[in-house]
Design a protein around this nucleic acid. Structure first.
Length: 560
DNA sequence: CGAAGAATAT
DNA sequence: TATATTCTTC
């Protein structure tokens, strides 16, 4: 009756010949659906009465791989009855009536999917996925344990995230996973050739009930949670979303761009991994994936290779965190709040409140951040040191340091294809996106594929020109000429570099002082927020209409 | 043991 | 290069 993974492996032209039980009280509807199914080379047995259908599956279980059951308002009980009594079969419920309650009940009773009528070809051509899914999940009874954290994160995710985009992202990822399932193993699923890009049924389900999506999801999750795992029931909703939730939710509060990026990222990576797997060996793919996963994640207890291929997906490596400007901003804000001495990954993570983000993620980012800091700070310290010893220089050193204009500023090539500082402003907008660094760190911004270099051929290490800011440069002199983007974050390393830098505690002290007494002039080497960053802040808070003239003006006539 | 940070891998 | 993972130290 149930299609096993082995069956699938030997099923040469899957899903052709898929045995579909069609239960629909409406003869017209039934024949219509049947025709469509048969057009796909599915093998359809039509029933108009659930009792007949049930007796058929009990007497000839091998004759059915999947069932499509109609639940009309008039005979809704029949549908449910079938659903409750044919649990071994993946059952797709269908109805004219799109009532959410009905849908939920169907799913709660174990239906793998609810499809609203009419059943167009797109909706039914991929029903075989449920067969595959079920086949792969057969015997996966140990699921609850690995799923537990997943479910928790899903629940919290739902608490936090009301945005539809969230759901869409998850669904899309789900789609990716489902197609991976099929693409992954051509031998098991030759049908993937025929239906190379199956739409995810669950995606449709979600999409078909957009207004109730949240509710529905929550219902599903909570159902799942309290009832434990329905063994063998496809858990695409819970499992898939859940598995991914820890990843996708890491950026759930981020705008579309972030989510999309993440999603694509995931898709690309998955694809690549699959390709690799296939390239290495086409036979024991499941095992290979499993062992691969086992190597990097917690090992799975289950032995069945096929059932593990699902687990594999479930425990798939965390996807890369995309440190978008928004995410980085949170990071920086956390740093700001914590101060330099408290800025440890766990606390940062705490403050960032980004679901799914791990301490490791933060640590890694922090490492990078600090590494960058090291590039800059010594120079600051140098100056500080220098100026502490030379009161005469303090006066101008309180001024914002600027960098000499590299010779490229008139270079059209560079001007029209601006690559901004990877540590400074993000590309594409010199105004409005800059992140306000905490005072104890120089401004820093993760790159997004565009990497700035001071000028062609010049390595970042070479930053720092023996140019000192003009003494009359006002304190708040941030707006920079547009043709020198990002450069304003670079401090100039005086040619005469000192071997000795002040001790860290001295730096900390100075920094703390600056924090405690913000009204005082900033200690040497530290800079006030730029206009850009202020604009950014405002923009982030919804104040977007800042007169552009506030930036790009000449520093020398700006601050007073 | 676990966190932090550095080093190394991908 | 950016991020993940592993190693080392505490």
């Amino acid at each position: 009756m149930v299609c096993t993974a082995n069956d699938l492996q030997e099923w040469k032209d899957f899903p052709k010949g898929l045995k579909v039980l069609l239960l629909d009280g409406d003869i017209n509807s039934a024949s219509e659906i049947r025709a469509k199914l048969e057009a796909m080379d599915y093998n359809v047995s039509t029933f108009y009465d659930e009792k007949e259908a049930l007796s058929a599956i009990s007497s000839r279980p091998e004759d059915f791989h999947i069932a499509i059951v109609e639940v009309s308002t008039s005979r809704i009980l029949g549908g449910f009855k079938f659903l409750e009594n044919a649990k071994d079969l993946p059952i797709i419920m269908t109805s004219n009536n799109h009532c959410l309650n009905t849908t939920m009940k169907c799913i709660a009773l174990g239906a793998v999917e609810f499809l609203s009528k009419p059943l167009c070809e797109d909706k039914i051509k991929n029903i075989w996925q449920h067969v595959v899914h079920k086949a792969f999940n057969a015997g996966a009874s140990v699921k609850s344990e690995p799923l537990k954290p997943i479910k928790e994160s899903v629940v919290s995710m739902l608490d936090l995230e009301k945005d539809n985009r969230q759901r869409e992202t998850i669904m899309s990822i789900d789609l990716e996973k489902v197609s991976r399932l099929t693409d992954n193993d051509p031998e098991k699923s030759p049908g993937s050739d025929k239906y190379p890009a199956p739409s995810t049924p669950l995606l449709k389900q979600g999409a078909s009930l957009p207004d109730d999506g949240d509710c529905q999801e929550q219902t599903n999750y909570s159902t799942e949670k309290e009832s434990g795992e329905h063994d063998g029931q496809p858990k695409s909703v819970e499992t898939t979303c859940g598995n991914l939730s820890s990843e996708s939710t890491s950026l759930q509060r981020e705008p579309d761009k972030t989510l999309v990026t993440e999603e694509e990222d995931f898709a690309n990576r998955s694809k690549g991994e699959n390709e690799n797997e296939n390239a290495v060996s086409s036979h024991p793919q499941n095992i290979k994936i499993q062992s691969k996963i086992d190597g990097s994640r917690k090992s799975l207890k289950k032995v069945g290779a096929l059932s593990n291929s699902c687990e594999t997906k479930a425990n798939r490596k965390k996807m890369k965190v995309d440190w978008t400007p928004e995410l980085h901003k949170k990071f920086v804000k956390a740093l700001e709040q914590l101060g330099i001495d408290q800025a440890i990954p766990s606390r940062i993570l705490e403050l960032m409140k980004v679901e799914g983000l791990t301490r490791h993620n933060v640590a890694s980012h922090l490492q990078k951040y600090r590494m960058h800091k090291r590039h800059i700070l010594p120079k600051e310290e140098d100056r500080k040191w220098l100026n502490q010893r030379d009161p005469m220089q303090r006066s101008y050193c309180r001024q914002r340091p600027i960098m000499s204009l590299p010779p490229y500023h008139s270079n059209h090539t560079l001007a029209q294809a601006p690559v901004y500082s990877m540590w400074g402003q993000p590309r594409c907008q010199m105004h409005g996106m800059q992140i306000w660094s905490p005072p104890d760190y120089p401004l820093w911004q993760p790159t997004e594929s565009l990497h700035w270099k001071p000028f062609p051929g010049m390595h970042a290490d070479a930053w720092g020109c023996p140019v000192l800011p003009p003494p009359q440069t006002p304190f708040f002199s941030h707006p920079q000429p547009q043709n020198m983007p990002a450069l304003d974050y670079k401090f100039h390393l005086p040619q005469r570099s000192f071997e000795h830098y002040p001790a860290e505690d001295i730096i900390d002290k100075v920094v703390k002082e600056a924090l405690t007494n913000p009204w005082l002039p900033l200690p040497l080497g530290l800079k006030p927020p730029s206009t850009d960053s202020v604009v950014t802040e405002l923009t982030m808070q919804g104040i977007s209409s800042i007169p552009p003239c506030t930036k790009g003006s000449n520093p020398s006539r700006h601050g007073h």
